[in-house]
């Protein structure tokens, strides 16, 4: 009996060691990025690399002085916030109707946007937006990013709406409540946590999306992610500033992800896995 108990303790110990090692592998590259962003320029390319150094904000300062970083950050905020709102406005009522009527094939059609490569849409969009002279405008970016956000909102909200007992709807209808009112007054207040999760996921994916802004933005409307490409060009001479940019760009999605981590997995797998 005690032999089994001690072998159990051994596996538990081994398990903890392996988990710690895995945690290090996951964490260290990100920590290295953040550390490098606080190094002075001679230190960041030092070989062998240094672990202990006097931290400096020099890189962050030079980023805002030598590049329009704040302007790009503002563009990212505008495009991401607006496309998240648009995704919610379009997606929330659609998810409600899909749940109510049990007709989900239109929602499945939106998944085409998730499966087809972005370039497939970018080619016709480029032609379409050129026709109406919208290339380089915020609206072109907001509308195309809503193609990312709307399916997220629909598929994250669908199980939340499905969880509302049918009897709630039926009672409301007996009282003469129209579908509009049921949606606005009853269903929507019951799925507020779903709205929060879908909004945050939509925000993160819109923020992280690279390809559309790469082609459809101009120097005035360029988002941070699309501008990353320029930072790399400049970064070949200045790693510190490059790592400072990378850290700042990664910050909003990471902060938001930590807030909703509990619900994240079921949302990220479009409900395929319960979190």
């Amino acid at each position: 009996m005690s032999a089994i108990a001690s072998s159990d303790r051994l596996t538990a110990w081994l398990n903890a060691v392996l988990l710690f090692f895995a945690g290090c592998v996951v964490m260290i590259p990100t920590l290295w990025m953040v550390l490098s962003s606080f190094k002075q320029s001679f230190e960041v390319t030092a070989y062998p690399p240094t672990l202990f150094f006097t931290p400096t904000l020099e890189n962050y300062v030079s980023l805002s002085e030598t590049t329009p970083f704040l302007h790009y950050a503002f563009n990212s905020m505008v495009v991401t916030t607006a496309s998240t709102l648009l995704g919610l406005i379009l997606g929330a009522p659609a998810a409600f109707v899909a749940s109510w009527t049990r007709i989900t094939w239109p929602a499945v059609v939106t998944l085409v946007a998730r499966m087809a490569p972005g370039t497939l849409f970018l080619l016709p969009w480029y032609v379409m937006f050129r026709q109406v002279d919208m290339i380089g405008s915020y609206w072109a970016l907001i509308l195309t990013h809503a193609v990312i956000t709307m399916p997220i909102v629909i598929w994250v909200l669908l199980p939340f709406f499905d969880n509302i007992p049918r009897s709630v709807y039926e009672a409301a209808q007996v009282d003469g409540c129209s579908p509009f009112r049921v949606f606005w007054r009853i269903a929507l207040p019951l799925v507020t946590s779903g709205l929060a999760v879908s909004a945050i996921l939509a925000f993160v994916f819109s923020w992280n999306y690279f390809l559309f802004a790469l082609v459809l933005s101009n120097s005035d409307t360029k988002t941070l992610i699309a501008a990353s490409f320029n930072f790399i060009g400049e970064g070949s001479t200045n790693w510190g500033a490059l790592m400072a940019a990378a850290t700042l760009i990664a910050l909003p999605p990471l902060v938001l992800a930590v807030i909703v981590q509990r619900w994240l997995i079921s949302g990220l797998t479009l409900g395929a896995v319960k979190g």
Partner: peptide
């Protein structure tokens, strides 16, 4: 859990920038 979520929540573009520096053939960590 937050720790294990962090890699895939960061933009792939940022992961690329980060690993470019780490994997640099002459000066990378």
């Amino acid at each position: 859990r937050s720790l294990f979520i962090s890699p895939f929540m960061m933009p792939p573009v940022v992961a690329g920038m980060m690993w470019l520096v780490i994997l640099d053939p002459s000066l990378g960590a």
